[in-house]
Simulated scan of single mutants.
Amino acid sequence: MALSQTQLAPLPAILIEPLVRAALLEDLGRAGDITTDSIVPSDQRATTVLAARQTGTIAGLDLAALAFRLIDPAIEFHREKRDGDPVAPGDVVARISGPARGILTGERVALNFLSRLSGIASATSALAEAIRHERATIVCTRKTTPGLRAVEKYAVRAGGGGNHRFGLDDAVLIKDNHIAMAGGVAIAIERAKAGVGHLVKIEVEVDTLEQLAEALPLGVDAVLLDNMSLDQLREAVAMVGGRALTEASGRVTPASAPAIAATGVDLISVGWLTHSAPILDIGLDFAD
């Protein structure tokens, strides 16, 4: 189920500003925007719009606005849409007016963030819509662009999904390699329970129903049912019987998601949402 606008809390400015500053510094290089500065008079003003070229869901407006503001505080950024809003081709997302040099200099960084995050939100929204009649929630993973995890996971929330772990320190996820190195499911779980605090949740990844049967009596909080068939997922959900959250992963697409959700799992995790979702095409146009 998609988040309402009141539930989608904006990211703190102190979190996003270093990302936008770094992107601007990368673009400005050692001499600034030599193209714009040599062509556009310093006193010229412009009125422009950010317009959608595709159907999708918007995310990243705070980063886009900040890109322009850091270049020139005199630039005015007026939103016509909010993060989480759907858009169709031609829809105006925001109106930008002010010094023309600053608008052109900040354009690419603003669009890079806005298009990237809106692409993630759009892909998430498509999956969430595909399973809207089921109880399951689409969640992302740690397969994120280095340095951009917080904003990419925010974009998933804007698209109506939820977040898995943000890092290695906020929950235990016992995966196949942990199990292999520990020597089995049970010993891995027992070591994890002995090694972390009582407030830390523990999830274990299982590939087979036999592994699931071994894990359940040990009181884990969630089980990740990795690359199981639909029949296996249904049986796994019945075995769990509400004693832990059930999470399905592997080969999830808008076409396959409804059948996966119909097995009764609580969560469907999708790595490609943040590592390879296509951008949403958004452009900056001069207003008529």
Rank of each mutant, 00 (worst) to 15 (best):
Q5D: 14
P12S: 07
I16P: 08
L19H: 13
R21I: 11
A31I: 10
T36Q: 04
I39V: 15
V40Q: 05
V40F: 08
V49E: 09
L63T: 12
E76A: 15
G90P: 00
V93S: 12
A94W: 09
A100M: 12
A100F: 06
E107Y: 03
N112S: 08
L114P: 10
A130F: 12
A130L: 05
R132M: 01
H133T: 15
T141A: 04
T141P: 09
R142P: 01
R142H: 00
R142S: 01
R149D: 04
E152I: 09
E152H: 01
G159P: 01
G160F: 12
R165P: 14
G167W: 01
D170H: 08
I174W: 08
A182K: 01
G184R: 01
I187R: 15
I187V: 15
E190W: 03
A192C: 00
A194W: 01
A194Q: 13
V196G: 04
G197Y: 03
H198Y: 11
K201I: 01
I202Q: 04
E203N: 06
E205G: 12
D207W: 02
D221Q: 00
D221W: 00
S229P: 04
D231A: 14
E235Q: 14
M239T: 03
V240N: 09
R243M: 00
G250S: 09
G264A: 03
D266R: 11
L267K: 08
T274Q: 02
L280V: 04
F286S: 13
